[in-house]
């Protein structure tokens, strides 16, 4: 179960719709509905961490299933930049992109479980890239 220290940016075409049906998946996490996962910028992620978020999750559509065509891929790129910027500060918030279609709650559940189990992103080699 996520607490208020988790900030989620959720695509209105996928994860936001899933959240309406199954709000227990995101628990108490802060939800910010965005028109597309690609709308999330490194600045949004940094602001969330600055205000105390220990985990930031971008909820995107599956690759190939995005109304804006490349939203999930672009969200990954923006999050990679946010990770690099965050690494410079020495902070270690966990940053993740989870992907699930609006009709696939199980995919979201699996992705969130995986995100919760991962080490802080800034401590991984992936974050350094």
């Amino acid at each position: 179960m996520f607490g208020r220290d988790v900030v989620t940016f959720v695509c209105r075409n996928s994860v936001a719709l899933l959240d309406e049906e199954s709000p227990e998946l995101l628990g108490e996490a802060v939800r910010i509905v965005v028109p597309c996962a690609a709308r999330v910028d490194a600045l949004h992620v940094l602001r969330a961490v600055e205000r105390g978020a220990t985990m930031v999750i971008i909820g995107a559509c599956p690759i190939g299933n995005c109304r804006s065509v490349t939203g999930p891929e672009e969200a990954e790129e923006r999050l990679a930049r946010a990770k690099a910027l965050l690494d410079e500060t020495g902070a270690s918030a966990r940053l993740h992109v989870v992907r699930a279609a609006a009709n696939a709650p199980r995919d979201l559940e699996d992705a969130l479980e995986k995100a919760m189990g991962d080490a802080p992103a800034s401590d991984t080699e992936e974050a350094a890239r």
Binding site: L43, R47, V49, E50, L86, E88, T89, G90, A91
Partner: peptide, 18 residues
Amino acid sequence: RREAGILASQLRIHAKEH
């Protein structure tokens, strides 16, 4: 403005971490 926001945010987080 956005890049200035990013730097300002980084500075605040860095200060807090240190």
